[in-house]
Computed example of a mutant assay.
Amino acid sequence: MTTWHERMTDWHKSTYTHWEENACVEVGGSPGLVGIRDTKQGALPDETRPILVLPAESFAALLDHLGR
């Protein structure tokens, strides 16, 4: 069985990250999906590291709601 960590690619830190507050998130993608994870949990093994997975349309709506 393929995990979300294996399915999501191109992980990168969000341009909306607040460095001075140590509030960093990474965003990755898979066809039609967007994954969001916390950079502070990078030391955790992938199989236990939580990822929030959203349809791409829902992620775009979230960004619009937050005011990009």
Rank of each mutant, 00 (worst) to 15 (best):
V27I: 14
G67A: 02
C24P: 12
S58V: 13
P50I: 05
H18K: 15
H65L: 14
V53E: 05
R37W: 05
P55H: 14
G29T: 15
A61S: 11
E20L: 09
T9Y: 01
D46H: 08
K40S: 10
H65S: 14
F59A: 11
A56N: 06
H65R: 15
M8E: 00
H18V: 15
R68D: 04
S14G: 11
G32S: 01
M1G: 08
L62E: 00
T15A: 13
T48H: 13
S30T: 08
W11R: 03
P55A: 13
L63H: 10
S14A: 09
G32R: 00
E6P: 00
G32N: 00
E21T: 06
G67E: 02
T15Q: 09
E21C: 09
A43V: 13
D46L: 10
T39I: 09
G29I: 14
A56T: 10
R49E: 01
G42Y: 14
A56R: 11
S30H: 14
E6R: 00
I36H: 04
T3A: 00
A60H: 07
E57W: 01
L62Q: 05
T15E: 09
G67H: 04
R49Q: 03
R68F: 04
S14M: 07
E26C: 07
R68N: 13
V34M: 06
R7I: 07
T48V: 14
W11Y: 01
S58H: 06
L44G: 01
D10T: 08
T17I: 07
V27C: 03
R68G: 09
G29F: 13
R7T: 09
H5K: 03
G35H: 00
C24I: 14
T48D: 11
C24D: 08
Q41T: 07
A60F: 01
E47I: 04
H18T: 14
D46T: 05
P55Q: 13
G35M: 03
T39M: 07
V53N: 06
T17Y: 02
R68P: 02
A61K: 13
E57I: 07
E47K: 03
L44T: 01
S30V: 07
Y16G: 04
D10R: 13
P45I: 02
G28D: 02
Y16H: 08
S30F: 10
I51K: 01
T15L: 10
E57N: 08
M8H: 03
M8P: 03
R68Y: 05
E20M: 12
E21Q: 08
D46K: 04
E20N: 12
E21A: 13
T39E: 02
L66N: 10
S14V: 09
G29N: 14
M1D: 10
A23P: 08
T9R: 15
E47T: 04
V27H: 01
D38S: 04
Q41N: 05
S30N: 13
V34N: 02
H65K: 15
D64A: 15
E57C: 08
W11L: 03
E26F: 06
H5S: 08
M8W: 00
H18E: 11
T9N: 06
S14Q: 05
P55Y: 12
P55E: 14
L54K: 03
Y16R: 12
M8D: 00
G67I: 03
K40R: 13
W19H: 14
P45G: 02
A43T: 12
D10N: 12
T2R: 15
A23M: 11
G28W: 04
S58G: 11
E6Y: 00
P50H: 06
